[in-house]
Amino acid sequence: MFNLPIEGEELFALEFGDIVNYFSLYTTTLFLFATAFIIIAIIARPERQTDIVFGTDAVYTKEINQDNLRFQRFMAIACGLATLGAVCSGDLFNFSLFTALIGITNIGIVAGVNNRYVLNAAYNYGIVAMVATTFLFGGASMALGTCGTLSIWELAGKGLVPLAAKMFLVLGVMGEGMAPFYIAKAEITRAPGAPYVLMIHVSSLLIFLRVIEIILTV
């Protein structure tokens, strides 16, 4: 495996045909973190949001629909699994596919919420997530065209991948994970179901961390 002074030593590699997944100290940390939050999403009850009735002292808690809750939990777990895949994938295209899956499940987590603002924000976010796949796949395929391979193992440390492909990958991940585009994500966060909504942020930050490792490595 590559021995670069970037992310700590390699721990173990998992082979699936031409796609070799690997775990370094760095990716293992991310992996464990995502696992912890998947477990939390599985076992935690959602919080009950309290609202203050304006102009009075009355406080009421919102009820969460049971069907919606199950669906949200399913999507949060799917999102967590996609994140696990994205942080350990050793192949550029496979990474972009996992990232696209994260984008979809993120919208799924809030899709069932009956709030106009949340749905509007989710819709706008969805459009950005769709457009971002162009950059993700474009970045991966430009790397393939100019280097002849997609494997991060083969590319590591050689600096062959052109800057344009790297920029495309980063912009793609920014779109899928909404990394610095704060506003729609802040609206989405208003949705109830804290353990599941938190998964949106966990996944998007982790893929952002991963893509940074990738562009520094290849």
């Binding site: 796609i19 996609a82 596919l97 499940t105």
Partner: peptide, 22 residues
Amino acid sequence: TRGLDTVVETSILFTAFAIASF
């Protein structure tokens, strides 16, 4: 050889279908 791509791809379809039908 690139089976993991296939798995992810169908998972994407599956997830999107789940959301749409929900």
